[in-house]
């Protein structure tokens, strides 16, 4: 009896918590993020109805069928009902996953557009670094023996390779708004993770692998990047920012960085 009531109250409180959106996603800053939110909402509706009905009926049977000293009905089961709810659950669950495949494919199974900006990411305990090819459009060769954080060379760009002379490295990732980005991600020690909430994208960065991630950010602004794969004692401090600039500002920034390198 008390349990029926408690279960109903908890169910309603849960519904209010999710329907009220007091704590919710940050603003979506691209098409994928908006699709994500739409699919999340659809899943929330489906599961919300199942959750509500299941918990309410659990409370109902507890409330309704308290022992009054009589006898229970004798029913061993009902094959028709088994078939109905098995099929129903299967259609609903598999349907949800097929619908979401589009959201997944948009990030992971799409071609990189020709006008994409290519950026490299290198993760280490406990920092992210980003590299741009610079004015020549070519990344310099790297050599792990030349990796040195003290000399500002987290990627180990080979000093002898002229293509590396103009490579720009940065601890934040700057991208032009509205233009596709191809981020090639590597780690040099343990697994890290690149997560931007506003993009609705998260990807592990795994040593020994170069993992591509494609995205496009449409709205200028600064967004936090928290490492989201346990990487050691400084995990909770491993932070970077995604800075989305209007395209002209982005080009200016690259030029300024290029100037700085030439002056060195």
């Amino acid at each position: 009896m008390l349990l029926a009531l408690l279960n109903w109250v908890i169910t309603l409180a849960t519904v209010v918590l999710f329907a009220g959106k007091y704590w919710w996603f940050p603003e979506a800053i691209n098409e994928h993020a908006r699709e994500y939110d739409e699919h999340f909402r659809n899943t929330l509706y489906i599961t919300g109805v199942i959750f509500f009905l299941a918990q309410m009926s659990l409370g109902w049977v507890i409330f309704k069928y308290r022992s009054n000293g009589g006898r229970s009905s004798y029913v061993e089961g009902n094959n028709t009902m088994e078939v109905v709810w098995t099929t129903g659950a299967a259609v609903l669950f598999i349907g949800a996953v097929l619908m979401s495949t589009q959201v997944w494919a948009g990030v992971h199974l799409s071609e990189t557009p020709a006008n994409a900006v290519t950026i490299e990411l290198m993760a280490k305990q406990f920092a992210f670094s980003f590299r741009y090819a610079g004015a020549d459009g070519k990344f310099g060769k790297t050599d792990i023996k030349q990796i040195s954080d003290a000399n500002g060379n987290p990627f180990g760009v080979d000093e002898k390779d002229p293509a590396g002379k103009d490579d720009v490295t940065s601890s934040a990732i700057r991208v032009p708004a509205g233009r596709p980005v191809l981020l090639k991600m590597r780690s040099r020690d343990v697994i890290h993770n690149f997560f931007v909430r506003e993009l609705r994208v998260k990807q592990d960065v795994v040593p020994g692998m170069e993992i591509p991630l494609r995205f496009q950010a449409d709205k200028p602004g600064t967004y936090e990047v928290p490492c989201s794969e346990l990487c050691g004692l400084g995990h909770h401090q491993m932070r970077s920012t995604l800075i989305v600039l209007p395209p002209a500002d982005f080009e200016n920034w690259l030029k300024e960085e290029d100037q700085k390198l030439k002056q060195q």
Binding site: F25, Y36, H39, F40, T43, F93, A96, V97, S100, T101, Q102, V103, W104, V107, R197, R200, V201, K202
Partner: peptide, 9 residues
């Protein structure tokens, strides 16, 4: 969580 599309976040 079982949907990779939603697990992305």
């Amino acid at each position: 969580l079982g949907q990779p599309g939603l697990d992305l976040y």
